[in-house]
Structures are given as C-alpha cells and as structure tokens.
Design a protein around this nucleic acid. Structure first.
Length: 871
RNA sequence: GCCCGAGUGGCGGAAUUUGGUAGACGCACGGGACUUAAAAUCCCGAGUGGGCAACCACGUGCCGGUUCGACUCCGGCCUCGGGCACCA
C-alpha cells in the first residue's frame, strides 16, 4: 500500500507562483506618486545577508507586509522598500573559512535571500533595493564622515577601548554586553588605541529630551535609551589641595550633602594621583593603582559588587564650603570614565562611601536627618540616601534638603568653587574597526601634514579586491600597498591611507533616508524626496536594537539635519518591536543540544539516554532548535506561513513555534478555499449585496449582513489602529464559521428572499477574501479572480463598514442579581429605565430570584447590563 | 541592588483602551456523520467540582480594599521574564 504524500487541499505552490509572477510583471508594488493620496512609509529593519532567512525575518516581514498591503488598499501611496545591511564580520570569516572573497559570499547570499523573500510574497518595491557594501552606497558614508569631521562631530583620539580578541577588532560600548562581545561572546579586553569617534554625546541632551516626544514608541525602548544616556543633574565642585596649588574637581548630584564630606576618593587611573601622593605613600599607592587598573579592565559587570578598597595618599584637600580638611584616598570603586574621576565622599549619605568609611575608620558625619528623627553615626547600619532635614550645615541647617540644594550650588558659584553641571553615561561612539569588510574611513595620514581628509572628488575610497584575509593581527587593509600608499592631498608627499573601516552600524544609521532616492548619485539622498517620506511612519524590528541601531539612527538623523540635508528631528515616528521566535530545545545529558532528528521516542539516537526536558528558547543554531522557513513554505505555502506567524501571538510578544499551529492555519485557508470552490455556481450567479441600497429584508440575511460589517470594522481597527493581527484573523475565522453555519441559505431557491440572501452571502464571502488578503495575499487573489473580479486585489480598495448595518434595533441585556448573571432580556436600543424594569419584572427567571426579597437597588447601564441588588 | 514588563483552561491566546455575560479564535482532546477501512472533510462537546438533568457552587498568581459590579482600579506581597549595574 502506497503511503499518500501530504494531502493536497489546494495547490498553494501553483497559486503562489502564479500571483508572484503577476505582481512582478506589473510592478504591483512600485511606489505610487498620486498627489491626491497620502504618503505612508512602512519599513522593516533590513537584514544582514547571512544566506538564509530565519523565522524572525518571516515574522518581522509578515507584520510589515500586512500593514503595507492594508494601507495601499486603503488608498495610500506606500513606500515599502527592502535592502541589505551587507558589510560585516561574518562575510569575512566565511571568506577565510572557504578561501573565498567576502563580496562573492555576500552577493550570493543576497541573491538567495532575495529569492526567499520573493517566495514569501512580500510587497516590496525592489527597484529601490540598496546594499550597504556597494560603493554607490558607502561613498556617502564617507561623504557624511567628512562632513561630520568638518563640523567637529568626528574626531580621533587615543583612548582605552573595548577590544574583542576573537573578532580581532574594537567594539563600541553598545556592543559590549556583560563584558562580552555582542557577536561572539568572547571576553572583551581593554586596549589603548588611536580611534575615530563620532560625537554622539553632543546630542545626548536632545536624544534624551525627545524620548518624551515619541508617543509612537514602546515605553520599554524609550526607558532603555534613557537609562543608557543616563543624564545626571548636579554640580562640579573644586576642592583645593592643602599646601599645594593643585585642585581636585569633582562631580556630585548631591551638593546638599557637601557639609558631610569626610574624605575624597580618586580613581586609580586619575592623572593627579601621582602628583599629589606624599613621598612615603608612593609605593603603596602605585602598587594599588596598578592592581586596580588591571582588575577594572578585566572585570565584567557581573562582579560589580566587589569589596570597597583604597589607599590613603598622604594628601589632604579642603572643602570649599566649610574649609574642612579631609584626607584624599585612591579608591577602587571610582571610575575614571565618568564625571571627573574624583568623588567627594559623604559616608552618611552614600552607601559606597559608607562601606569605605567603615572599612578604614573614617568619620561619618550626618547632615540630613529623616523627617522627625535624628541619625546617630555610631549606630547607622547603612547610608541614609533619602530626603530629609539639613543638619550641621552652617546656615542651611534646618532646611529641607531639596530646598537647600540649589542654594548651596549658588553659594559655590559665588565662591568661585563650583557650578551646576549635567553629566551623561553615554560615551562617544567609537567607529574604527580593524577589519576588511566595511566602509573605509576616508582619511590620509601624512608625516608632515598630519591627518588629512580624502578630498570629496576622490570619493569613494573603494575597498581593494586583492587582500589577504587572516582574521588575525591588524586590519587586512594595512597589508595592501595598492590601498595604503597614496599621496598627501595637501603637500603631495608620500602618505599612508587610514586602514580602519567603519562600524557597520554607521551604514544602517541612514539607509532609511537612502530609500527615498536610492539611485541618487549627486547626494546621499534627494532632500525633497526624503522630506516626502520622512519620518518613517512605521518602523518594525527586534528589540535587541534598543540601544544600538535605534539610538545611532536617531543620532545620525539629528546630525544630518544639522548638516542641512533634511528637516526632520526623528527618523521613526512609530516603532513596533516584535518578540522573538522560540522553540523547544532537545538536550541529551551526554551530547548536549541535539537536533529533533537525533531524537527517537524521547531518547538520544547516539547514546540512548533519556532526553532532558529542554527549555523553550530563542531559535539559534547553537541550540539546534532552528526551523527553516523554506521547509514550512515548501510544505504549506507562504500564505500559511505568514498567517500562522501572525495568528499565533500578538506581534510584540515572544512566539513559541509549534508545527501543530501551522497545520491549523493551513486548515483554515483550505476551509476558505472550499467555501468558495464548493459554492462557485451560486456565488457567480449574482452580484454582491450593495449596502447603499439599504438593509436586507429577511432576518437571516440581515443578521449575516450585520456580522459581515462588524467583521470589516473589527479587522480594519485591529490592523490599522492596534496591530492586533491575531484578533483580526480570529474575527475573519468567526465570519467563515458563520458562513459554514448558514450554507443552507443558498440551497432554498423557493425562499421568498432567495435573491437577496445569496447576494448578502456573496457580500460576506467577498469580504472574507478582501479582509484576508493582507495576511494571505496569494490565495486571496486567486479566489478573488474566481468570483469574477477583473481588477486584482492589490489594486482594489478596502471595504468600509456600513454604519447603517452596524446599528441594531434590539440589544440583549444581561440581568444580574446581586452581581451574578441570572438571566437575559432583549430590549430596544436605548430603552428607558422604566421600560427595562418592566421587562425584568416580566422575566420569569429574574422574578424567581427576586421573589420574596426587597429590591434595594436597581442599576441599569443602557445597552449593557442590569444589576438588581436584593435582600 | 535599581528600573521596566508579565502572571487568565491541557497549550497559544481573547476580553483590559471606557470596570459591565471571563475563557473569543485556534491547537491538542473526546464524540458523531461520511468511508469496506483509514486519511481528509463536515457537525457536536468541553474552565473546575457536584448533579441524570434543569441547575448550583467555585474560578483570571496570593492577601486585603474601593464599587451595585473588579482579569480590569487602589494598597501590600509572591513568582517569572527583560534591561541596567560601583554612574558619585
């Protein structure tokens, strides 16, 4: 007996192929320029061309495509482009591994991924495709870099930077997670290097302020950005050294505690440390500083809670407010990278200072008491950091600390010993990368003229093709004499080209602007075209970019605005961050994670051991729980794949992948298919009911007509206003279920209202097809043409819910007795309380519950509910 | 430690915008029809407990509050997930 293959319910492969060809042939998704229509820019984060799309892409792009198709049908000019974030390390590593070239690897990947995306039936305007590794694109990176340099927003500095030994390159602060490389999870080392930086800190304040002006962003992302920028308002205060001209500048957010300073602490790497240390303390301080610097460099944030340690320098400094003389320590908990690298220490009101003071027997002086209490330093168990009443603080004693704070800053200013300041955690963006496959930094180093920009007319600085990629040592570009040997643009003498390339996050910081005029060869983008589309109306992508791409893109947008290239303040008006796609992992006690095909009956095929219950985790190669979308598309079709990825969970939630669910989505499409194919004769024998001609006369027809229009309203709101795709789909399913229930309506030609009824039935069927089309466009187009439509769906309009059909004459009201549902009554819409009371009194079930009791209260919410309190 | 978010059937999730029938829709499950049989399809059932049944009681992490009425609002906890982490 031959085993039957997958049962064919409808030929998804043929249908999908057919419509993809039609769309392509007719340029269905090239952007309209109809000036009478509103413009809408839908954008999904462009992918890195790794070679295969994954389920995360499927989900991301399905969300965007539903929106784009929906808006196009609603009459917008929709810009919905796609491109490739195609510079980056994996290409270089793959090239090394296969003895190939990164460009070859990358372009092959682009080709195959593009094919996969097309197979998904996504409505992209492919004529606007961009690839960041193309010189046509990256020349503008270089152009912008030079503009930023002129503006003082790009600069070169020797500094301590994060270095990943595995990737053999420097990383930005945003690319270090828990002290590990964001890509390969190697422990990041600190190195002293000459690096190019972009001055994102110049925009720290604006970037932060605008997080309060982005109502279309998830609060979670805005919060993460606020924390990352980390604004602290406070004051700089100068403490002069006793018996010296040196001054220690500190930053504090708590000037109100200045009278409680009992010591000073400096970072181990503080430049003054050497200078001020007393002779007999030198060796102790030097060895402490050496040890702490090494520790700080190798410390991941996980071990943040280390013991407070320090060494007395032998120096003393003077509190500018009360002339108190306090000892200066070198301390392990003071960071050189924040503020000034020196901290005034107030043990009574700062927990770190408290611990340090306890350790080294330094006095604790209370200057703020909790309301109604007096603190005793001798018995304090921890620092008191909350608000309170000032104590022992000269003329400020007795004031509320928050009241005194600004006055103290004023006093400092008057004394010339301080001023208000704001500090940020945000650091400038280090963009130098010692790798080949990236955009060359357009700079020439000349022995006599120094750092020289490459003249604009010489752009682009193109990556040389012939380089040796080893993955070790410095940038491969440094080995290419054809690349590095140049003449100084200033003096003409032999000079050397910069060999570092830019962080690929530079490439993705402005690509959304390029889509507006992707073929522009005279500017990065045409200002008029950019202003036509920007800001992006809806941006969609993963939350993992909350403080990476999404922050850099905001910075770039502002910087380019200030260069006069466009006039928008923010790149993305609305942001949707979709959740991860996860799947159960399989774990063998001996072999670790294994693939599903390595498991038989819950045991490992290699050793026969029983598998552990694997956690549900983000799909990843290392966890061996990746599902290849191609397999699903092959088996069930693109429509089913898209439908399931949107139906299974709301977009922002994590989605747990289950094959059973896919089967369900497939079944539903088959159900829609049969609904039409099996009734095609009747459906094509009439026109759909026209809502403009009033309401249907028969009860059945009216009911179906109303359900249809309620569904139209619900789906329209769910897609357009809430992105609740899962509930939009479920309401279409409900309408389909209803149509199955009412199938008999078509089978009674003798029926008085037969003509009207089948017209209403057809109206409902057509609505199903239209409403389903953003989710499952291929099958919808096919069904649409089957029911006699000449104009394809992508050119058709979206239906309007008829307000007339949404109005009902009667409503069903729930009757509660003492808060519990006991009965229902049917009443006219907006009935009076009197009328309702009468209805309830005539309702047998209600009366039963009231019998023998007194009605204490009668609550009636029109058209909603009735509640009687009896007792 | 600090800051967010979330806890609802066997499972994914709905209802939370505006307090008003909790569990839509789907998966898995059970039953029926069709079939020689199976698959597919179509129909029906189903929160938990009790009852032949009509029906009754309980039920949205826990405790308490506000209200005629609370998954929804308020106060206090618990658990899970995420972000930040010596930021002065």
């Amino acid at each position: 007996m031959a085993l039957q293959a997958e049962p064919i319910r409808y030929d998804h492969a043929a249908i999908e192929q057919r419509w993809q060809t039609v769309w392509e042939k007719h340029g269905a998704f090239s952007v309209g320029s109809d000036p009478s229509k509103k413009n809408y820019y839908v954008l999904e984060m462009f992918p890195y061309p790794s070679g295969r799309i994954h389920m995360g892409h499927v989900r991301n792009y399905s969300i965007g495509d539903v929106l784009a198709r929906f808006l196009k049908m609603r009459g917008f000019n929709v810009l919905h482009p796609m491109g490739w974030d195609s510079f980056g390390l994996p290409a270089e590593n793959a090239a090394i591994a296969h003895g190939s070239h990164p460009a070859k690897w990358t372009y092959e990947n682009i080709k195959s991924m593009k094919k996969q995306l097309k197979r998904m039936g996504l409505s992209y305007d492919w004529s606007r495709e961009v690839a960041t590794c193309s010189p046509d694109y990256y020349r503008w990176n270089q152009w912008m870099f030079l503009k930023l340099l002129e503006k003082g927003l790009a600069y070169r500095k020797r500094s301590t930077v994060n270095f990943c030994p595995q990737c053999a390159t420097v990383l930005a602060n945003e690319q270090v997670e828990d002290g590990l490389c964001w890509r390969c999870s190697s422990r990041v080392e600190m190195k002293e290097l000459e690096q190019w930086f972009l001055k994102i800190t110049a925009y720290a304040n604006e970037l932060l302020d605008y997080t309060y002006k982005l109502p279309g962003w998830p609060e979670k992302v805005l919060l993460m950005q606020r924390n990352w920028i980390g604004r602290s308002v406070g004051a700089d205060v100068a403490f002069r050294l006793d018996g010296s001209d040196e001054v220690i500048n500190i930053f504090t957010t708590r000037p109100d505690t200045l009278y409680g300073v009992t010591f000073m602490s400096l970072a181990a790497a503080h430049p003054l440390l050497d200078k001020i240390t007393a002779k007999d303390s030198r060796s102790a301080v030097a060895s402490f500083a050496a040890r702490v610097s090494a520790e700080v460099n190798n410390r991941g944030s996980r071990e943040a809670d280390v013991k407070k340690e320090g060494v007395f320098t032998g120096a003393w400094c003077i509190n500018p407010l009360n002339e108190a003389r306090v000892p200066v320590y070198a301390a392990n908990f003071v960071l050189m990278g924040y503020g000034t690298g020196a901290v005034m220490a107030v043990p009574a009101h700062d927990q770190r200072d408290f611990e340090f003071a306890k350790e080294y027997g330094i006095p604790i002086k209370v200057v703020i008491n909790p309301p109604g209490k007096t603190l005793d330093p001798a018995t304090m168990k921890e620092a008191y950091v909350a608000e309170g009443v000032m104590a022992d603080s000269d003329r400020f004693t007795g004031m509320e600390n928050l009241e005194a704070l600004p006055l103290i800053v004023k006093l400092l200013e008057a004394k010339g010993a301080g001023r208000p300041t704001t500090n940020y955690k945000l650091r400038d963006w280090g963009i130098s990368r010692q790798r080949y496959w990236g955009c060359p930094i357009p700079i020439i180093h000349c022995a006599s003229c120094g750092v020289q920009p490459v003249p604009y007319q010489q752009l682009p600085v193109v990556l040389p093709e012939n380089v040796k990629l080893t993955g070790i040592g410095s940038s491969p570009l440094a080995e290419s004499s054809e690349f590095i040997d140049v003449k100084c643009p200033e003096c003409g003498s032999p000079a050397r080209r910069e060999t570092d390339t830019m962080d690929t996050f530079v490439d993705s910081s402005w690509y959304f602007l390029r889509y507006a005029s992707p073929h522009s060869s005279s500017a990065p983008f045409d200002k008029k075209e950019a202003m036509r589309w920007m800001p992006v109306d809806q941006y969609i992508g993963g939350i993992e970019h909350a403080v990476l791409h999404l922050l850099y893109a905001r910075f770039f947008t502002k910087a380019l605005r200030d260069l006069g290239l466009h006039d928008v303040d923010e790149p993305f008006a609305n942001l949707l961050t979709q959740g991860m796609v996860r799947k159960q992992t399989l774990k063998c006690p001996e072999h670790g994670f294994i693939y599903p095909e390595e498991a038989v009956n819950g045991a490992c095929v290699h050793c026969g051991k029983t598998l552990e219950t694997g956690a549900i985790e983000k799909m990843s190669k290392s966890r061996k729980n990746v599902i290849d979308p191609d397999r699903i598309i092959e088996r069930y079709g693109a429509d089913t794949t898209r439908l399931f990825s949107l139906f299974a969970a709301p977009p922002e939630k994590d989605l747990d992948w289950s094959e059973d669910g896919v089967e369900g989505a497939y079944r539903f499409l088959g159900r829609v298919w049969r609904l039409i194919v099996e009734n095609i004769g009747v459906l094509n024998s009439c026109k759909p009911f026209d809502p403009a001609s009033g309401l249907p006369g028969s009860e059945d027809a009216l009911k179906l007509h109303q359900i249809t229009h309620r569904t139209i309203r619900k789906v329209t709101q769910d897609i357009g206003e809430r992105f609740h795709f899962n509930t939009a789909i479920s309401s279409i399913m409900e309408l389909v279920n209803e149509l199955y229930q009412l199938k008999h309506l078509q089978e009674a030609p003798a029926h008085e209202h037969y003509k009207e009824t089948i017209e209403v039935y057809k109206e409902a069927v057509e609505s199903v097809v239209i409403l389903l089309s953003p989710f499952a466009p291929h099958i919808s187009e096919e069904l649409w043409s089957m029911i006699g439509k000449d104009v394809p769906l992508y050119k058709s309009g979206w239906p309007e819910a008829s307000t007339e059909a949404l109005v009902t004459a009667e409503v069903s009201l729930v009757v509660q007795i003492n808060g519990k549902v006991r009965s229902k009554v049917v009443a006219p819409v907006n009935a009076s309380a009197e009328a309702i009371k009468e209805l309830v009194m005539n309702d047998a079930k209600s009366v039963e519950w009231i019998a023998g009791k007194e009605i204490r209260k009668f609550v009636y919410v029109p058209n909603k509910i009735i509640n009687l309190v009896v007792g």
